[in-house]
Design a protein around this nucleic acid. Sequence first.
DNA 1: AGGCTTACTTCAAGCCGTGATTTAACGTGT
DNA 2: ACACGTTAAATCACGGCTTGAAGTAAGCCT
Lengths: 414, 414
Amino acid sequence: MTLRGKQTVRDLRRGSRSTLLRRLYFDGPLSRQELGRISGLSAGSISNVTGELLADGLVEECGSVESDGGRPRILLQVTPGRAHLVGVDVGETQVRVALFDLALTELAASDHPLSDKGHDVDHVVELILTGLAEVLRRTGVDPDTVLGVGVGVPGIVEQGDPAEQGAGIVVHSQTVDWDAVPLGRLLRAGTDLPLHVDNGAKTLGQAEMWFGAGRGAQHAVVALFGSGVGACVIADGARFRGATSSAGEWGHTKVHVGGRRCRCGSRGCLEAYVGAEALVERWGGAADGSAEKAGLAALLAAAEAGESAAVELLDEAAEYLGAAIADLINLFNPERIVIGGWAGLLLGPRLLPAVRAATTAYALRFPREQTSIELGRLGPDAVTVGAATLPLSQFLDSGGEIAGRIGPGVPAAG
Amino acid sequence: MTLRGKQTVRDLRRGSRSTLLRRLYFDGPLSRQELGRISGLSAGSISNVTGELLADGLVEECGSVESDGGRPRILLQVTPGRAHLVGVDVGETQVRVALFDLALTELAASDHPLSDKGHDVDHVVELILTGLAEVLRRTGVDPDTVLGVGVGVPGIVEQGDPAEQGAGIVVHSQTVDWDAVPLGRLLRAGTDLPLHVDNGAKTLGQAEMWFGAGRGAQHAVVALFGSGVGACVIADGARFRGATSSAGEWGHTKVHVGGRRCRCGSRGCLEAYVGAEALVERWGGAADGSAEKAGLAALLAAAEAGESAAVELLDEAAEYLGAAIADLINLFNPERIVIGGWAGLLLGPRLLPAVRAATTAYALRFPREQTSIELGRLGPDAVTVGAATLPLSQFLDSGGEIAGRIGPGVPAAG
DNA sequence: AGGCTTACTTCAAGCCGTGATTTAACGTGT
DNA sequence: ACACGTTAAATCACGGCTTGAAGTAAGCCT
């Protein structure tokens, strides 16, 4: 049923450029020789395509490797400073804007706390735009070299019509009380840069897949535990989006029909058993904003000290979590499950053995044996990195086409 | 991250052939003109490609449509008798082998009940091979025109190395006590035809997607209720397989951690609340083999008659089913949910309103609004049709390449 | 019969990847 | 020093693809 559209011979070149660029980007400096071996392209094509990429300044030579007796191989790598990316994290307590080079090295960042005004949309948009201007000004980076702005938001994102250049993006979020907020249009009014918006948990998941515990996996689920619970599903190496990009909303799946009441209004949601807010609240702590982290840490400390109420609470959480992960394994058949998010990383070391055991008890044997469960390797700050991968991903997909932003053939500035 | 392999200029033609063939197959007779409009290819390419397809006998002209004032459009369609397909359903009570033409019209079928010997593997293989020989003999179809044999089995299928031509296929099934059965190798010993094996629920799901309630959807979940519970997930128009083809095992996801015991040995599985076996058993009926259908019908009749125990049982099932479907909606974000399988079709008319309401109560609002829940339109016999779509799908993907089986250019026999 | 409209075919032009050949850049042995 | 072998990269003829323009076929209307 999959119908891919019309293809012309030029699409072949685009595909080849994309393949080689991706390979160079992720597998570090490579010689043309190795590129040929890995990609399957003939030496002639490699020569042609790398020639183009070099002429466009997207790739540069970087040293060489002697080969016993013959001409040494010249190593190629993606030119880090050839283009730039902006990642934005609209978090629960702050808005963070970061500017990266192509290698995702952070060149500058701007943090603005979200204090009293809360998540008033206009205020958030204003913070994003001023942050963007700030990092550009501080680094002196030419805006024409910025491939795009990726934004991670706490909510469900409707992508709208891609032809609208992101202006059709609409965000729904029950937690910060955004209902059909036209974030794309609001940001478009303040910048001409290409826009990409996705759920923050999803961008963090993408970061784990590219640079963290998910590296190398083609099928994986990144489970994210913070105040709430989310997930980012990767299938065949790409984000699983579903019909309207909202796939992977794991936190409100039912692990106990008719069970505990959840903040979403329903009952028996996973989040009501393992979300940080729910755990802290059940243990009697304060559950708002920054107090939550302290509360969860206190719960953990109490459990380590052997307090039976705390131990029971965490044991139960591990049980439910294992069951919910088992569901993910049964349904998605991933090769890896990565547990991330600030709460996941905090509780992970203690809970992981019990979670693994519960998962094994609840999941079907065959797919369970194909799956490993690991902790994330990136901190919660990686949301901005993940957001920046949104435009980067499109850049690599297109084979380094910089639609009108950077003239082809112009060498990198500086 | 998605790296598609090397592409040469010939792959373009393969892609074009595939696109046009698919279009002609699913959207009935079409003129070259409409083909061009739909596919985006230029008139010249359409002419070339359809010329090839006509020469190969895969496509034929069938009438014409007058166009006010100009040259009439000639309609093209896939030649139904150009090739054949075999679908096999290894069910719980019988083995059914059916021979189809390209239009999936059944030309002959052979049923063999699985009585006392049960699911002894060698016996099943023998029944499949004799059934295959039988339908070929009865119809006089040349085995060289058979594109392949698709088999639907009750269990998890490991596809093995595609290079082995299906010989590496291994089946695991707890219900019929198959543990790593090398079905591919066993069948390969008895036939040279290309082999395709998949879970029976998945093949039925594929049939619903192609010809039933799923038509036209790109993202859907076909939920199947029989003795147990299964699902077939379609994403971007293709089966969602996961890392080792076992994705979509929905029946043993947990809807009530620590709840009812399930026949799989775990607790709180969906199947323990809505599977036919569980329902009949809880209502006090016999739960083995063919008595199950009678038992479920009796339960339904009792509920219709107002017996409170039966009504309560079905109400509870609808509640759990709605919750589990809500999980599917949250996780996969489909545009359609199709409920099929013999038990699903039997209970569906009564349960559907309650299920829809429960789903709305349990799912997140946004993805729920994007999804419709419908009953399947194909009976349980469609497993064989679905099985036959396995080789058919490959045939269409390859653009009608009939690897060595039918000489290109040879016109259809008869 | 001539003109008009629409469907389809043919053909030159521009690209692309391949594979063979050529050129470049390095060790080594005499 | 210098020829020689070896390996890496560039060049180029070739077959194949899609496109788009020009040409042909097949029906209407007057």
